[in-house]
Design a protein around this nucleic acid. Structure first.
Length: 266
DNA sequence: GCTAAATGTTGAT
DNA sequence: TCAACCTTTAGCT
């Protein structure tokens, strides 16, 4: 279940497993069958991630665009694939392993131009070397939207999701209800830098861990207990780890928001 | 066995 | 702002 780090981990793993190989492509569920038939047996060159989007670059300028959405999941394993079970949208089978995709928002065969158009709609991705935070700033600085909404806007930070928005604003001491126009440039750069730190850590460990306990144990982030991984996300009614105030929740930008009313007063 | 919820996006109102 | 869509699983009865 994915924010940007998940897409980047999948891109890396699938490139390692399948890059340069000819793959059997199928769609047992039937909703990707036409494209699967056209791709079956084709060589996959590599997989790239931009924000939460995945691009599977096959020979002949054919690209499979995958977006996991909120439910999507890849199951990847060594060996021969088992008989398909459930709603299996796409199955990739390489020489020594396979990947099963279920429940994605997007799984479509597109052209390089169409892929470029998807990427052009995205803001800077903290997990990409070439990311320019000022592209996000250009949008944020003139917006009347609240920060809690802007931190979910993929044109501001590509790859951010509901956990990162809550945790990054908490760590910055910024209220999710402050409007973008009321945020100064240094504050934005601080938020951006923290995004990059947290997302890189999540990329390495496979988990979003934002607490100081995690900072100390970052190399062993997997060992941090689930209940200690976040400052505010899904901690409604529990005491703030820094000030003891009760963590609040509401719905903002159609998602559950969590924040500390004391540490994030403005 | 049923219901609600979940790290998301799009397109219509 | 709201509903629709994608699928599995946790937490009930």
């Amino acid at each position: 279940v994915p924010e940007g780090h998940t897409a980047h981990r999948i891109a890396r793993e699938h490139t390692r497993r399948f890059g340069g190989s000819n793959l059997a492509v199928s769609s047992p569920q039937g909703r990707f069958t036409d494209a699967a038939l056209r791709l079956d047996g084709a060589r996959l060159d590599r997989v790239e991630a931009y924000g939460k989007h995945l691009f599977y670059r096959f020979s002949g300028d054919r690209i499979v665009h995958v977006h996991l959405g909120i439910f999507g999941k890849f199951t990847t394993a060594d060996g021969a694939p088992p008989p398909p079970i459930g709603e299996l949208r796409m199955r990739l089978v390489g020489p020594t392993s396979y990947a099963d995709l279920r429940g994605p928002t997007a799984c479509e065969l597109i052209t390089p131009d169409e892929a470029a158009a998807v990427i052009a709609r995205l803001g800077p991705d903290p997990l990409r070397k070439d990311a320019d935070p000022d592209r996000g700033w250009a949008r944020l600085a003139k917006s009347r939207l609240e920060m809690g909404a802007l931190m979910l806007d993929q044109r501001v930070v590509a790859g951010s999701g509901n956990i990162f928005r809550a945790e990054v604003l908490y760590r910055a001491g910024v209220s999710p209800f402050r409007v973008g126009r009321a945020v100064d440039h240094p504050t934005w750069l601080g938020i951006w830098t923290d995004f990059r730190l947290l997302m890189r850590a999540a990329f390495r460990s496979g988990r979003i861990i934002t607490t100081e306990a995690a900072d100390r144990e970052r190399p062993k982030a997997r060992t941090v207990p689930i209940d200690d991984a976040h400052y505010v996300y899904r901690r409604t009614g529990m005491p703030c780890r820094r000030c003891g105030s009760e963590i609040k929740t509401t719905v903002q930008a159609a998602r559950n928001l969590f924040w500390c009313p004391t540490c994030q007063a403005v």
